[in-house]
Write a protein that binds this DNA or RNA. Structure first.
Ligand code: MN
Ligand code: MN
Ligand code: ZN
Ligand code: ZN
Lengths: 148, 148
DNA sequence: TCCTAAATTGGAAAAATTACTATTTGGAGG
DNA sequence: CCTCCAAATAGTAATTTTTCCAATTTAGGA
């Protein structure tokens, strides 16, 4: 789904401000990658972004796309979804939730009754059939805080 | 952190029941992989599991570990964390949440005020410094439901 | 115990991500 | 406008993660 003109403009302004604030160059590649991502509310991976941009920017390298995306995450203007180093598995079938460290990727179980039976919004049925809802808290874990 | 004897026994029973119900063989490899996962509340990846089991089961192949883990996910006795095909990115910085399809991995934005300011449990500070909390709903998306 | 469909192995292939160096360039300063 | 150079990129190689496959082994029913 495409984002409204207003939102897009706002995001692009935030993008320019964040780069300026950090003293980084505004390059055509960075503009293209961010615009591509900001334009849609889908959640593409690096390869998908690279694939689409390659048509208009034939020289764009995949490395630049990855580097740029992680830079944006560092700057706080983009969020990454999913684990850093591959899929993880969990045999704990009791209702519980997770804390995930943004630095090292470590994950911890959280038990919190209030989270166990969240009332899901009705419009959700337009998207699909919900089976389970869990809370994901993001932050910095103890270990990473101490060796900062 | 190690799981209590009781919980472990219960999980192992569920495991045996699920395999039996599905008419699948109970092999030493499946037992080892599940036990390894059920023993701890950490969230290891396939390689980590394989690495640890290799000491006691030198012949265990990495393929078997992957195959076995995804089988458990299909059976509903194990949950996978993170995206199926790599990290994804999101430039939407407004508070929002996600629906993720278990079949195809597609993700959709959810807007729900009730989810935006969840009150986090106090013990969370023992784990680390929380920065953000979001809800992840899991289920089957429209498209996957229709071509079932 | 025997038999066979199901499961595993080991290695190769594919897919995802990161590393590296030669080359290019944004933008500060003149 | 030019000049210049630290910062950024392209192209490719290396690494990591995940899947595929053919040959071999095995769990468990008969
Ligand atoms: Mn867990
Ligand atoms: Mn989103
Ligand atoms: Zn950490
Ligand atoms: Zn789907």
């Amino acid at each position: 789904m495409r984002v409204s003109r207003d939102k897009l403009t706002k995001r692009m302004e935030e993008f320019r401000a964040a780069l300026k604030r950090a003293g980084l160059k505004i390059t055509p590649q960075r503009l293209a990658v961010f615009a591509r991502l900001a334009e849609e509310d889908s959640h593409p991976g690096a390869r998908a972004i690279h694939g689409k941009l390659k048509k208009k920017m034939p020289g764009l390298s995949l490395d630049t796309v990855y580097r740029t995306l992680w830079l944006f995450v560092d700057l706080g203007i983009v969020e990454n979804m999913g684990e850093i180093d591959g899929v993880r598995f969990d045999a704990n079938t009791e209702p519980h939730h997770h804390f995930i460290c943004r630095k090292c990727g470590a994950s911890f179980d959280i038990y919190c009754r209030d989270f166990d039976d969240l009332k899901l919004p009705g419009e959700l049925s337009e998207i699909g059939e919900a089976m389970k809802a869990m809370v994901e808290v993001r932050g910095i874990c103890r270990k990473c805080l101490s060796r900062k």
